[in-house]
């Protein structure tokens, strides 16, 4: 044993959804990345770029069309649901909408205990009670909250319940699908700090999906940028903000409103023109060429591959490698 395999490794992951008229939605197309233990990979992109589909395919809510998913070096993409059960314990998900992702008819105790019951972790009711109240305390709720229902809580408190449910099985990989975008600014920071605290304490590995780029930079070690189902750029988090290479990343970054009026009024903004094309008939060649200010004939015909431009910095763009 010289080297630990990454907690999550994804190779050529593809997810197509059939739609009427014998067409397919190219939700995820040939995406590859890996995340090592205790690290966070941030996935960013506009809505419809496939970041959530990617997460849901990894956790096998959706069946992958093609590609491999390796959890701790073991392939899980070919397992059936029953074989998958022991691996489900190792990967959990925190959802975007703390209103829709908690069952309104279950008490908070039952919501948090459900994963324990599904995996038959506790041998007695007492053990279950102890684990749940311990977990509640760790997410900053108290024992009295256990017998209440989700509607009695604020958005931030509900998201804490969602986090407690995801972490009670002590998973290795936690997929956070926009965990803070439905929360108020003052609450977002609370939740992010809590996620970081648990990561340090439990050596959790995060796949953090968000469209708030400044928050992604703050929580992630590495960042992947997705566009129309494909990974177009991937590198260390600070690097992507300091030296973005792909014209899409550059446009996305310059679209972020800066909470600094002097900078906001002074800077020349480029931004992105137009809308995301349909993933049913993605543009040929580079999928970004319809909105790219530098598109050439080559971009319209030939699909660029994700290649290393400098150490650890991968980008799929002809322009970077042609100059």
């Amino acid at each position: 044993m010289n080297r630990q395999p990454p907690v999550l490794q994804v190779e050529g992951l593809t997810k197509h959804f059939p739609v009427s008229g014998h067409k397919v939605v190219h939700a995820v197309d040939d995406v590859s990345f890996s995340v090592s233990r205790g690290k966070t990979l941030g996935l960013v992109g506009e809505s419809g770029c496939g970041k959530s589909s990617c997460a849901r395919t990894i956790i096998r809510i959706y069946e992958p069309t093609a590609g491999r998913i390796l959890l701790d070096g073991e392939e899980i993409s070919t397992l059936n649901q029953k074989q998958l059960l022991p691996y489900r314990k190792k990967m959990q998900m925190i959802f975007q909408d703390p209103y829709a992702s908690l069952n309104a008819r279950m008490t908070v105790h039952d919501i948090i205990a459900e994963p324990l019951r599904a995996h038959r972790v506790c041998s007695s009711r007492q053990e279950e009670n102890e684990m749940v109240s311990d977990m509640l305390a760790r997410v900053g709720l108290n024992k009295e909250h256990a017998n209440r229902y989700a509607h009695e809580f604020s958005g931030g408190q509900r998201q804490r319940v969602g986090i407690a449910r995801a972490l009670i099985l002590k998973p290795e990989l936690v997929i956070c699908d926009e965990p803070i975008s439905a929360l108020d600014v003052s609450i977002q920071a609370q939740v992010v700090n809590m996620l970081r605290h648990f990561q340090e304490e439990l050596a959790l590995t995060y796949l953090f999906i968000a469209h708030d780029l400044s928050m992604v930079r703050y929580v992630s070690d590495d960042v992947g940028v997705m566009y129309l189902g494909q990974l177009v750029e991937k590198c260390e988090a600070d690097e992507i903000y300091r030296h973005p290479l792909h014209p899409y990343t550059v446009g996305l970054l310059s679209s972020i409103p800066v909470p600094n009026p002097r900078m906001a009024k002074a800077r020349e903004k480029s931004g992105l023109e137009g809308d995301l094309p349909s993933p049913i008939d993605p543009p040929a060649g580079c999928r970004f060429h319809t909105r790219c200010p530098y598109a050439t004939e080559q971009c319209r015909q030939e699909m660029p591959q994700l290649k290393e431009a400098s150490s650890g910095h991968f980008v799929a763009c002809h322009r970077i490698f042609n100059r």
Partner: peptide, 10 residues
């Protein structure tokens, strides 16, 4: 999305 937000603000 941020990119569209940027267009609308402009």
């Amino acid at each position: 999305d941020v990119s569209i937000q940027d267009q609308i603000l402009k």
